[in-house]
């Protein structure tokens, strides 16, 4: 499913004195199969945008299509409401610190809750298959499924929360700051899990992140949000070569982009996608070529 938004606009607390325009004409395309990164300051509209993707926030102004489902403002509410449930099972949403939302007595029950919500008629064996399948995908065992979520470590809790979302087999998985608060090893493992899910359970992965290095290392394409607009979009190579624009938006640049810029000032242009692996490989090549 392709995500196409045009002129998406949204105001919180409309018609009150606290009115705040969170989205101001977002036009953005996310192709099926991408590992897409959304970056931008706190308050730039990132979270408001992703909440539109599974109709947690109904479209107020502008157009939004998820595959062939049209959520645009022009489409009648009654018509849209019919496919909301199906849409929400196809677009999985993992919020920030999702482990705080675990509530059931066992990990199994927590993961099953999501499934039963979407498929109330499901038989016990179908639920079992879906739940254990989801837990296996995030790397939690059958033994852990029987435990209380509070007996798990921080990283495991987050995995359990993700299992509760992928249990409906969404085609698009959207995660708001998936690695926030984890320790370095936990971060690495969770990013590896997202790449694994991207290749197996879910076609498209969309992450919201503050960490430019992480985005440079992981994403196929990026959108930069600022003041409610998607002001830049493109591949990491395209986005991070425009360091000046990013700095003007008061955003950081990945360390690789910083180093590339310095090297270019002394006459060495490194053509890279700004991931650490690619940047170091190209720099080593450039140096080898020069020193010969």
């Amino acid at each position: 499913m392709r995500i196409v938004s045009e002129g998406l606009t949204f105001t919180y607390n409309k018609k009150t004195k606290f009115a705040k325009k969170a989205l101001d004409g977002v036009s953005l395309v996310i192709e099926e199969g991408e590992f897409f990164g959304i970056i931008g300051h706190t308050g730039s509209g990132k979270s408001t945008f992703i909440q539109h993707l599974n109709a947690l926030i109904p479209v107020e102004e502008g157009t939004l299509k998820i595959g062939d489902r049209d959520l645009s403002a022009s489409v009648k509410k009654s018509k849209k409401k019919k496919f909301y449930r199906e849409l929400r099972s196809k677009v999985g949403m993992v919020f920030q610190y999702p482990e705080y939302q675990l509530f059931a007595e066992t990990v199994y029950d927590d993961v099953a809750f999501g499934y039963k919500n979407f498929f109330p008629e499901a038989k016990k064996e179908d639920i079992d298959a879906a739940v254990y399948g989801a837990l296996e995908m995030v790397g939690l065992s059958r033994e852990q499924a029987g435990k209380s979520p509070f007996e798990l470590s921080g990283g495991q809790k987050r995995r359990a929360a993700i299992a509760g979302v992928i249990v409906t087999r969404p085609e698009i998985l959207v995660l708001d700051e998936p690695v926030a608060g984890l320790d370095p090893k936990g971060k690495r493992e969770l990013m590896a899990l997202l790449h694994y899910l991207h290749g197996t359970a879910c076609k498209t992965v969309v992450i919201v992140s503050h960490d430019m290095d992480e985005v440079a290392d992981n994403c196929t394409r990026i959108a930069v949000f600022s003041e409610g607009k998607a002001v830049m979009q493109g591949s990491p190579a395209e986005i991070f070569s425009k360091t000046e624009e990013l700095v003007n938006l008061r955003l950081d640049v990945p360390v690789t982009a910083y180093l590339s810029e310095r090297l270019e000032e002394v006459g060495t242009k490194i053509e890279t996608d700004y991931s650490v692996a690619d940047f170091t490989e190209k720099t080593i090549k450039a140096y080898g070529g020069k020193s010969l």
């Binding site: 180093l259 310095r262 090297l263």
Partner: peptide
């Protein structure tokens, strides 16, 4: 970055 620029 200083070390790298020096090298290049």
């Amino acid at each position: 970055s200083e070390k790298l620029c020096e090298l290049f």
